[in-house]
């Protein structure tokens, strides 16, 4: 699913060079459930931007679902994000002026799905996360846990093979956080590839494989028993 070969990302801060990623090689197979952990500054956010095709590496190779993306143009990357990746963010990142169903429709809008078809798909996705009774609620009328479920529904609506979750429980209380984790585990068992970024070990331990980053390098790559 994900093949990263010797990926480097160098930021120039004035005359200093910061090696945010310093030669990362990483393979994630289909239907794997991987978490990436590390302290802040370890490069996990940068890696997540790379995997999510939001940024381009300075050097190295990256292919997702068999497509080489490291040399792609902005518009092609937008298509990859749209078709291959479902994002779940720490701060939900829902559009506050749109209703739940409109938020879930967004990836489908950019995919070019027609109005009625789109609505049906969005409702299905919301049903899947147990929010079919909240279709027309705005984000500020929903609890944090519910907002994150809307965000998961949005990540699912375009049926991407990869779900990329960046600290999905970071802004939630323990109970809602557990609910969200259960949902992510369900997604895994239904066949999605999942990459989870977190700094909390007990969250990471719910996945099948933990990759620890430090100073832009992979420190440890181990399976969870």
């Amino acid at each position: 699913m994900i093949k990263i070969e010797d990926m480097k990302k160098i930021y120039k801060m004035g005359s200093n060079e910061v090696h945010a990623l310093d030669g990362i090689s990483l393979h994630v197979k289909e239907e794997e459930f991987v978490s990436i952990v590390g302290p802040s500054g370890s490069g996990k956010s940068t890696l997540m931007n790379m995997i999510g095709c939001l940024d381009k590496p300075t050097s190295g190779k990256y292919s997702i679902d068999g497509k080489e993306v490291s040399k792609m143009k902005d518009n092609e990357l937008a298509d990859i994000r749209n078709n291959k990746i479902g994002f779940v963010f720490q701060s939900f990142n829902l559009l506050p002026k749109l209703t739940a169903v409109e938020n879930v429709e967004l990836p489908l809008v950019y995919m070019g799905v027609g109005r009625s078809e789109r609505y049906k798909m969005a409702v299905d996705a919301l049903k899947q996360v147990g929010l079919s009774n909240r279709l027309d609620h705005k984000p500020n009328e929903l609890s944090g846990g519910q907002q994150q479920r809307v965000a998961i529904a949005r990540a699912l609506s375009s049926k991407p093979p990869l779900i990329l979750a960046d600290e999905p429980t970071g802004a939630l209380d323990t109970k809602s956080g557990d609910e969200i984790m259960n949902m992510i585990k369900e997604l895994h068992s239904s066949g999605k590839t999942i990459v989870l970024i977190t700094h909390e070990l007990y969250i990471a331990e719910q996945s099948k494989r933990i990759i620890t980053l430090r100073d832009g390098k992979i420190l440890e790559d181990r399976g969870v028993v």
Binding site: L54, D74, A78, R81, N82, F87, L94, P107, M111
Partner: peptide, 15 residues
């Protein structure tokens, strides 16, 4: 922020 979200979800420049 809205523009960032839209782009992450697959909006192209022309969108």
């Amino acid at each position: 922020k809205e523009i960032g979200i839209r782009k992450a979800l697959g909006a192209k420049r022309r969108n």
